[in-house]
Design a protein around this nucleic acid. Structure first.
Length: 702
DNA sequence: GAGCACTGC
């Protein structure tokens, strides 16, 4: 049935190599069939006799669809011999021999079974995407291969430009190449970078439309704004074409904040004699595959989130893509027949400026959660600062994680995990929220905290996708949602859920209030999962129900805000004396503003509260605190005391080579903006910065 | 009065 797939011809060679080696790297280009075939080959060769074959995927949909496909090919019922496990959904049974799962689920399984003994083979698929979870799994699996009592085979699949590096990491294990089943894609470079890549994409798209034979066009942009602009320009130009001079055109935007029903439009084929233009973010690079694409226009840029450990701030930057990403984008043109990729940059830029591989997420994120996770595994002789990562995060980033964990009592002053920390690691939440739940459990406001944690887990998917233009078009006023009683966004999120609860979780209510139904259903799922986990952990009777009478007595939300203050001790800010700006505490101090979308209220004098905790710092046009909650001085004092006592050398195991040069107490010198938004080490940083400057300069000129 | 790319437990 799958004999047409290129990988099948390599079965003997792959199996021989797997037999002789504990770890094998498979370079499998798109369409090679690696995701569906490797597991079946191993199954045929008896590797499922001594255990289960696990295949990890970075995305839920992929885990489900690939499992479904394999079950079909083997002629078995999904959930029996072949199954999958994703959050909220475990479709496996005692019969299961091949199990597809997200890498996050496999990490959770490690918590209860650190040696993963039920598995005879672990396949880490799509490792070249370098998700945070995949990177941690690679480190763990490398240990397991050496330490586990029973034999373990590991296969890692990656991309051409990354294979050697992964092989080196796994003690120079063999690398096998499996060709893909892509049609040739002709790469056409621009001579130079365009002044405006919107205009340049528009010109290129119209050229294709007028000159080239039928086939859809996929255009990669960086964000919703640019997509909307290009879509409307394309519509204008297509309409101004002379009737009958060329085929019809349909223009579709495609990005993550588009409601699902608009996203799926790209899956319905165009009517005859009609060309589709799909203007997309990098969602079309890996997550969604659009059939019928023959032409790709690649701007060469992507919007990327990065974390700066010295300021605790994220920034969303437009950066150049990597060679792997560029090739992935080009490959989207060759799925159904030979295609063309128009790169809006020169081959010199591709060769010399583009990084081989995307900067791994582990070097762009806050590591508090990951460090806590690794500490909770209690691996023998392991120093977290020396954990064997394929690409280690910066020392500074690990120190930042330790400091944050210390402030929320997850580790003690010598860096050892506490019993509080151990419990926190069991919860599928970021550390601040896990800590809040535990404190709320002591405080008698667990039910409220569960709701807040669940709402924040889904927060970005709650508000229905609305573009600027749509907002203007819409006549009716914004739906009236609760206002958080002035205490800020956490309380507002709680009130929204409670109101939905009072309306019997009615779907119509969500729609009226402009809330995404899917997002709200997700909140319910998360809340249920968290309640169950808390019940198991606390072993006693808990009040996890939303309880009306209790709520009535708590109009000032004091207990909840207190619990949040303990949980967010690592995310605290103090208002400036003379104005409504805040200064962050516990990091290199940053001047930040309450995000304009916040419901936090000012007092009669127009001033915000003296202290707030925030969910996240994000630098967009300016540095903002997103999702803030008012807290009070007496709750803040213990945190300030703890900060005074902070000894980072002791936390990191007294290794003595701490790189902290700037004293925590140098409050007066606020950093310049450039310092505030960078977070990528070494020369890469300056290259990305330079690219961003050039890009912004061009954008500004036009 | 500003604007969030994409995943996941």
């Amino acid at each position: 049935m799958a004999s047409h797939l290129p990988i099948v011809q390599f079965e003997d060679k792959i199996m021989k190599t797997v037999e002789d080696n504990a770890v094998v790297v498979i370079i499998g280009e798109t369409g090679s069939g690696k995701s569906t075939q490797l597991s079946q080959m191993l199954h045929r060769r008896g590797y499922t006799k001594s255990g289960i074959i696990a295949v990890t995927q970075p995305r839920r949909v992929a885990a489900v669809s690939v499992a479904r496909r394999v079950a079909q090919e083997l002629g078995v019922t999904l959930g029996e011999e072949v199954g999958y496990a994703i959050r909220f959904e475990d479709r496996t049974s005692d019969l299961t021999r091949i199990k597809y799962l997200t890498d996050g689920v496999l990490l959770r399984e490690c918590l209860s079974s650190p040696e993963l003994n039920q598995y005879s083979v672990i396949i880490l698929d799509e490792a070249h995407e370098r998700s945070l979870n995949t990177d941690i799994l690679m480190g763990l699996v490398k240990r397991l291969v050496k330490t586990r009592a029973s034999k373990l085979k590991v296969l890692v699949t990656s991309a051409t430009l990354d294979g050697e590096k992964v092989s080196e990491f796994f003690s120079d294990c063999p690398v096998l190449n499996v060709p893909g089943k892509l049609y040739p894609v002709e790469i056409l470079y621009s001579e130079e970078r365009p002044k405006s890549y919107i205009e340049s994409s528009l010109r290129t798209a119209m050229d294709i439309h007028v000159r080239e034979p039928e086939g859809d066009v996929l255009i990669f942009m960086t964000g919703q704004d640019d997509i909307d602009k290009l879509v409307s320009k394309l519509e204008d130009r297509v309409q101004s074409l002379e009737e009958g001079s060329c085929m019809d055109a349909i223009i579709l935007p495609l990005h993550g904040s588009l409601p699902p029903e608009l996203q799926v439009r790209v899956f319905s084929p165009p009517p005859p004699n009609c060309r589709r233009f799909i203007v997309a973010t990098n969602i079309a690079e890996t997550s969604l595959t659009v059939d019928g694409v023959v032409y790709v226009i690649d701007s060469g840029y992507v919007k990327q989130r990065q974390y700066n450990p010295s300021t605790g701030m994220y920034s969303l930057d437009i950066v150049q893509i990597s060679k792997v990403q560029a090739n992935q984008r080009a490959g989207r043109a060759g799925r159904t027949r030979p295609g063309k990729c128009y790169r809006l940059y020169s081959s010199e830029v591709y060769q010399e400026e583009f990084l081989d591989v995307t900067v791994p997420e582990i070097q762009r994120s806050s590591l508090a959660g990951s460090v806590l996770y690794l500490k909770s595994l209690d691996l023998p002789d392991i120093d977290i600062l020396k954990f064997d990562f394929l690409d280690p995060p910066s020392f500074e980033s690990l120190e930042d994680a330790l400091k944050q964990l210390y402030l929320i009592d997850a580790i003690d002053d010598t860096g050892l995990i506490t019993s509080v920390g151990q419990t926190m690691a069991e919860l599928p939440l970021e550390p601040s929220l896990s800590r809040t739940l535990m404190e709320a459990n002591e405080n008698g406001c667990l039910s409220q905290a569960l709701t807040v944690a669940a709402m924040l887990s889904a927060e970005t998917t709650l508000l229905a996708g609305q573009s600027k233009s749509n907002e203007k078009k819409r006549k009716h006023p914004p739906p009236d949602l609760p206002d958080g009683s002035g205490y800020g966004d956490h309380v507002q999120l709680l009130q929204i859920f409670e109101e939905w609860d009072q309306n019997e979780f009615d779907i119509g209510w969500c729609k009226d209030k402009g809330l995404q139904v899917r997002g709200m259903m997700f909140v319910k799922d998360v809340r249920r999962q968290l309640s169950q986990l808390m019940q198991k952990i606390a072993k006693g009777s808990l009040n996890v129900r939303t309880n009306e009478r209790y709520k009535e007595r708590q109009r000032d939300y004091k207990n909840l805000r207190k619990a949040l203050c303990v949980g967010y001790a690592n995310k605290l800010a103090e208002r400036m004396v003379q104005h409504n700006g805040y200064r962050t505490i516990g990091f290199k101090p940053q001047l930040v503003q309450v995000h304009p979308s916040s419901t936090l209220k000012t007092d009669e004098d127009g001033m915000f509260p003296n202290y707030v905790v925030y969910h996240e710092l994000i630098a967009t046009s300016r540095p903002f605190m997103r999702n803030v909650c008012a807290v009070e001085m007496p709750w803040v004092n213990p945190i300030l005391k703890k900060l005074e006592k902070l000894n980072i050398d002791k936390l990191s195991g007294g290794s003595g080579h701490s790189i902290r040069e700037e004293s925590e107490t140098k409050v007066s010198s606020l950093p310049k903006k450039e310092e505030a938004v960078t977070g990528v080490p070494d020369d890469r940083e300056s290259r990305i910065q330079a690219a961003r400057d050039r890009f912004l300069a061009r954008k500004g000129k036009k």
